[in-house]
Design a protein around this nucleic acid. Structure first.
Lengths: 358, 358
DNA sequence: TTGAAAGCGCTAACAG
DNA sequence: CTGTTAGCGCTTTCAA
């Protein structure tokens, strides 16, 4: 029997005794044969089962060592019916806010033997929003969704099925839907930010918000509106601008537009719902010849690392990004452990960080 | 025969006819039975093979539609011996430079039916550098390594085996090793940056560099040193500071340290090998009461989106980040197509972007 | 403590 | 054009 056909993946029908081919390559059968034990035994030592005699274990381990055998996880995955992959859907992992959350997810996932299957949902834009199909096809064991658009899609068009799938929502969520979630109290956070601005004597506080189709954006808008109202200031529509992207340029443009307003109407403060937006706002204000905070105060949201570095350092609402990610992962893991357990919603605390921009 | 045991994954030995259990759930066999065809036929329509009569195809498709069947990729992966996952090793995906490269990788990977298995190598720090084991265990079909430490580890301790594994190096690479790579000409890039500073009349140009254990750092240092030398300026060791992390604070601290130098020695320009570092430098300089560029000019590296937003806008060496990622992915894909093809090394062009910082 | 054997669900050769 | 069938490499009963 020669070594030929060792690359073939096709049936070989060589001689009577089966797996004639399997014996050569790096299969568990090959290791078993060379170590003079059964495949079951090799599998047992591979998985650290106790019921293997020490001497036998040593022999198998030695054979594995010398042959450089590595378990084929493709086969293991089929047999155990799990991929040990966690799907992570993020709208834009170039955004430091999401990047940090993903880090949190990754750390607990790794600690539990899972890897991340990363999907930048923004990369596909509107196209095929069926990332959940990856779950159905067993490409991932569970999912964490950071993308508000995808969360809403799941809640609305998948409705019932959505709650049956092993996933959790992070940052954007609907408490009424039965999908586990973790996030912050967006209403209070926005309210806190605006109240801070008001306390510093600002009166015309603009809001640069995401698409208010999203729940979190609605909540932040409400927080802004109510804080103004409580100070006896009627919210004005010209002070509210919605952007559909959280990058720097969007913030810069929004700020520039706001500064076009006639003198008495132009805001003396801007609350942006993301630090990246706020960094752009700073830039846009500079372009419009406004000083921060003298002419216009700026408050951001998230407290990414950059917030403390720029000039002027950004006052912002800190979100516990790492914990958000860690909690999301833990919620999902808990769901694996008991698929029918109650599904908690978790709100983590935010915090106003006062720096020099407002 | 009741519906019991439908959740069981264990052998059932129920009655004579095999796969009694398999027929129920969402297996291909179940679909086949209900559609009145064989599993082979279902597999054919699933994979879009041409040799299926239209009527039969319709029948199968209809059954798939009504039953909501989804292929089990775990099984498919085992059978086809591929995971269709690309391992992406990045030292820190919170860094916008890497994030953008990963985007490039992702876009071509998706276009070819691959997903990304993301590994933040920094998350583990020194611990277990054996990410390549994921390849050996078939957890991924190939890998792209953006982490200089991991690249060196592969080149040095894995030597021969390394070149046999399906991976490509991105940004950090050793042309002599036989591993496909993509990157830029770091020597010339650094040389260009420093020459620019010199042309603007700066004489004491400091370098904030990565750990010079890495090749790319050595090359950039050489470019800096030679550009100075060509201008008749001897490089001074006090002008060179090495950091082992590219985050903002590292840059801020390095700049602060540099500004401690006695008047005649203190640099009038700083070249930092990463924009994140440079942003920190701007902050450090501000803390030391220096104006940019009047007192100290600053040049960064990478041209991340932020570079154009901060104050003052950053002069920097632009790297084609997306193309870097796309090229890396394409190189890897080409290697899949022909494992024994020649392994090209690709150098992409860099570009000096002059803004206001220096 | 060990081994034999039954599949996990799929693809593809081969035969009709 | 369609069906039968042999595995991919592994884990886990079940029996010894």
């Amino acid at each position: 029997m020669s070594a030929r056909s060792s690359r073939s993946t096709q049936p070989q029908h060589e001689d009577a005794g089966a797996s004639a081919a399997a014996v050569r390559g790096g299969s568990i059968a090959a290791v078993a044969q060379r170590a003079g034990v059964s495949v079951a035994t090799v599998s047992r030592v591979l998985n650290g089962h106790a019921n293997v005699r020490a001497a036998t274990r040593e022999r198998v381990l030695a054979e594995i060592e010398t042959s450089g055998y590595r378990v084929n996880e493709l086969a293991r995955n089929l047999r155990t019916a799990e991929s040990r992959l966690l799907l992570t859907m993020v709208p834009d992992f170039g955004n430091p806010f999401y990047a940090e959350i993903v880090r949190g997810i990754d750390s607990v996932a790794r600690a539990h033997g899972f890897f991340l299957l990363l999907c930048d949902t923004g990369a596909d834009a509107g196209r095929e929003r069926s990332y959940f199909d990856l779950l159905r096809r067993h490409r991932a064991d569970g999912a964490i969704c950071l993308d508000p658009a995808t969360v809403q899609h799941a809640n609305q068009v998948m409705a019932a099925e959505s709650t049956a799938l092993p996933w959790v929502a992070c940052c954007e969520f609907d408490p009424d839907v039965g999908v586990p979630y973790v996030g912050i109290d967006n209403y209070r956070a926005a309210h806190d930010a605006v109240r801070h601005l008001l306390a510093r004597g600002r009166r015309r506080v603009a809001l640069i918000n995401s698409d208010e189709h999203y729940l979190y954006a609605q909540q932040r808008r409400d927080g802004w509106r109510d804080a103004l109202g409580e100070a006896g200031i009627a919210m004005r529509d010209v002070w509210r601008v919605n952007v559909n992207c959280l990058d720097y340029d969007a913030g810069a443009q929004a700020a520039a537009a706001l500064m076009q307003l006639p003198a008495g109407e132009a805001p003396d403060a801007i609350f942006a719902v993301s630090d990246t937006l706020a960094v752009g706002v700073l830039n846009g204000l500079r372009g419009a010849g406004r000083r921060v905070p003298q002419d216009v105060a700026v408050v951001g949201f998230d407290d990414i690392a950059l917030a403390a570095q720029i000039d002027p350092p950004l006052t912002t609402i800190a979100q516990p990004m790492r914990e958000l990610g860690e909690t999301a992962a833990r919620l999902l893991l808990r769901r694996f452990a008991d698929p029918r357990a109650s599904v908690p919603g978790v709100l983590l605390p935010h915090r106003l960080v006062v720096r020099e921009s407002g």
